Simulated assay, not measured.
Amino acid sequence: MDSVTSTEFGAPMAELACSSGIVPEGVLNGAEPVVLRGLVAHWPIVHAANESNRAAVDYLTRFYNGKPVNAFLATPEANGRIFYNETVDGFNFAQSQVYLDDALNKIIDVADQPNQPTYYVGSLEIPQHLPGFDAENALDLGQTSVREGIWLGNQSVVAPHFDFPDNIACCIIGERTFTLFPPEQQANLYVGPLDFTPAGQPISMVDMNNPDLDRFPRFAEAMNAAITVTLKPGDAIFVPSMWWHSVASKSALNGLVNYWWRSTPAYLGVPTNALLHAILSIKYLPKEQREAWQALFNHYVFEQPDDMYDHLPAPVKQKQNQMSELTARKLKALLSSKLK
């Protein structure tokens, strides 16, 4: 492909200068996206990328330990869009196990060719496949249980989706345009199946390259609420939990390092699992029963009145107000037995 075309829209995003390589205080606890210009401009991989794509590939492959990686490959007709097929019973790409150095060299080889296929290696765990890279290209977020991944490929467009963890994404090679939508815009994004997704997360069915407002009229409201930014190598962005975001990789070779962490312990599980179970057990109940369960969820989950356990003896009240790892394990075991 000559380039991935995209319809860019959205208001500019808030920005902070971060030449010191330190995330400004308060950003990681915020609820709004923030661009962090120059946050990782000092990284060796960014210096290599600014020299050339070949220098960037040579730098990355110094750390590669030869383990196969999962790659997405789409034909030129996909125009870089990682998506479903026409009937939404499959996808417009194939997945295969490849060697990362072979994939990166292939991207370099076809960089000047028209009608390129799309190569996409996503969410590759750095310690598992590029040991030592994070020692030379480090970012201290002051968080525990941070998952560090790298995303590599040529030009592509990833549909709007959300992630449960908070996220700092650092552009290391090429340019990437992020378009973000607030969580309350979910109803205007025309989300696809929850149980059948291209990469694990539900995605918007709207083509970000060419939004069809006749088919998806409410997306016009989402466009009005969107914010956008283009990152260059060395820039980063903080994407808060549950914000929908689309990412367009703009260059012949693109690289991104991201850090995911959550504000609650991992033993509490992932809310998406609760959503799927609620769809299974509540969605098809009669209206009156659904409303009764909605009231229970509001009381125990979403509203949580301060005095909701005041009528219980103090030891029982304390137990009900706390969620320890032991209690979480007991609840999971109970759920597992009931689901059988």
Rank of each mutant, 00 (worst) to 15 (best):
residue 262 R to M: 06
residue 231 L to Q: 01
residue 171 C to F: 00
residue 270 V to F: 08
residue 249 S to W: 00
residue 184 E to P: 00
residue 200 G to S: 05
residue 187 A to N: 15
residue 272 T to E: 03
residue 292 A to E: 11
residue 285 L to K: 15
residue 253 L to R: 11
residue 204 S to T: 11
residue 207 D to M: 03
residue 202 P to E: 06
residue 256 L to A: 04
residue 184 E to H: 15
residue 191 V to F: 07
residue 215 R to H: 12
residue 188 N to Y: 08
residue 253 L to C: 10
residue 193 P to D: 14
residue 160 P to G: 15
residue 245 H to V: 14
residue 217 P to W: 07
residue 220 A to C: 03
residue 222 A to N: 13
residue 250 K to F: 07
residue 243 W to A: 07
residue 185 Q to N: 12
residue 207 D to Q: 06
residue 266 A to S: 10
residue 276 L to F: 06
residue 224 N to H: 14
residue 281 S to L: 14
residue 201 Q to Y: 07
residue 170 C to M: 09
residue 202 P to K: 00
residue 269 G to Y: 04
residue 165 P to E: 03
residue 173 I to A: 09
residue 289 Q to K: 13
residue 169 A to C: 09
residue 273 N to L: 09
residue 244 W to R: 02
residue 230 T to W: 08
residue 171 C to V: 01
residue 182 P to Q: 08
residue 189 L to Q: 12
residue 244 W to E: 03
residue 243 W to C: 04
residue 192 G to Q: 10
residue 245 H to Q: 09
residue 167 N to G: 05
residue 246 S to K: 01
residue 205 M to R: 05
residue 256 L to G: 01
residue 167 N to I: 09
residue 212 D to G: 01
residue 189 L to T: 07
residue 222 A to C: 10
residue 285 L to G: 04
residue 251 S to Y: 08
residue 193 P to A: 15
residue 163 D to I: 13
residue 189 L to A: 05
residue 185 Q to V: 03
residue 278 A to H: 13
residue 178 F to C: 10
residue 209 N to T: 13
residue 179 T to G: 01
residue 184 E to N: 15
residue 280 L to N: 11
residue 177 T to V: 10
residue 243 W to M: 02
residue 177 T to A: 07
residue 218 R to K: 14
residue 173 I to T: 00
residue 286 P to L: 07
residue 175 E to I: 06
residue 191 V to A: 04
residue 202 P to W: 04
residue 250 K to P: 01
residue 271 P to V: 06
residue 216 F to T: 02
residue 262 R to Y: 03
residue 205 M to L: 15
residue 226 A to P: 10
residue 238 F to V: 11
residue 287 K to C: 02
residue 182 P to H: 09
residue 235 D to R: 00
residue 206 V to L: 04
residue 228 T to S: 15
residue 173 I to F: 11
residue 198 P to E: 02
residue 185 Q to G: 00
residue 163 D to C: 13
residue 202 P to V: 05
residue 220 A to V: 05
residue 268 L to K: 04
residue 161 H to Q: 08
residue 265 P to Y: 00
residue 289 Q to L: 07
residue 234 G to P: 09
residue 284 Y to A: 09
residue 280 L to T: 07
residue 192 G to I: 11
residue 279 I to G: 03
residue 233 P to F: 14
residue 255 G to P: 01
residue 273 N to M: 10
residue 172 I to M: 14
residue 234 G to L: 14
residue 288 E to G: 02
residue 260 W to K: 07
residue 179 T to E: 02
residue 258 N to S: 09
residue 180 L to E: 08
residue 269 G to V: 10
residue 281 S to D: 15
residue 177 T to R: 11
residue 176 R to L: 12
residue 201 Q to M: 11
residue 247 V to G: 04
residue 243 W to R: 08
residue 226 A to G: 04
residue 279 I to E: 06
residue 197 T to W: 09
residue 255 G to Q: 10
residue 183 P to S: 12
residue 286 P to V: 08
residue 261 W to A: 03
residue 283 K to D: 09
residue 287 K to H: 09
